[in-house]
Design a protein around this nucleic acid. Structure first.
Lengths: 134, 134
DNA sequence: TGCCATTTGTTATGTTGTAACATATCACAC
DNA sequence: GTGTGATATGTTACAACATAACAAATGGCA
């Protein structure tokens, strides 16, 4: 039983990588139930896998949509900026030094010690802007 | 019945201003039920009031904690940075031009048109750092 | 091999949020 | 002033998101 957790994590990550779009925990649950042809799998299993994945940076949680996304910048230490398109649902993960440092400066002037940054930008992606215009 | 909605919004905002700390929708609901001495009030009423308050900037939703906070920077158009202390639960609302512009620059280089920014920094506030040290 | 620590499965339930429809109120034409 | 329709609100029920708590299994190690 012990090893299976890592297996679950791999499966969840594979699903997220496959979709290249954010999925909710329950969407992942349904995918996995479908692929296993069984309803045995339960929510806590998914949430544990997601906790492991987000804990070590293999995936990100999108707080404003309760969904999860595979990390596309392996091993970045900087803060990720998630640009979420309201039209097509795609999410672009961006890592930017200027954003990181301006947030650090702001924290410093306020005597705040940051540990985790949540930066999510909702809007319209370039592709959808072009589509809308045409 | 029509006017009452505005009343509800005022009451909700008053509760948030009073606490000066984030509250969940259901915490607000319980407060209001208590102060009215009745359980008649239902969740959708609170969510509608919160939608009105967040819609016009009188309050902010904290996405990473599913909670709500009265806005302390009346009428700002810039993006708010919410610094959330994990120790004491206090949230400091900060408005900073450098953060705003670095995010705008990042969006521009990626052809993304931003509409709503969610910037939440979890960490430890100055007061709690001092307390922890002593 | 037997025991303990830890992980996983499972059940149940807690928390957050909203759809859908009934009811009340207001604005406005008449 | 009163009828009528548009809109806001109250209410019920439920959907979606998340986790507590405990049982069962596994692997390490004496």
């Amino acid at each position: 039983m012990r090893k299976q957790g890592h297996e679950t994590q791999k499966e969840v990550l594979a699903i997220l990588l496959n979709k290249r779009a954010p999925l909710t925990a329950y969407e992942i649950l349904h995918e996995m139930r479908a692929s296993q042809g069984s309803d045995k799998l339960a929510a806590p299993t998914i949430y544990r896998a997601l906790a492991a994945l987000t804990g070590d940076g293999r995936a990100h949680r999108i707080e404003s949509t309760n969904s999860y996304l595979a990390c596309t910048h392996e091993g970045h230490e900087d803060t990720a900026v998630l640009a979420i398109c309201g039209d097509c649902g795609n999410v672009e993960e961006q890592v930017d030094a200027a954003v990181t440092s301006s947030l650090e400066d702001l924290a410093q002037t306020n005597g705040f010690r940051p540990e985790r940054h949540v930066i999510e930008v909702h809007g319209t992606c370039g592709d959808c802007i072009r589509k809308d215009a045409s």
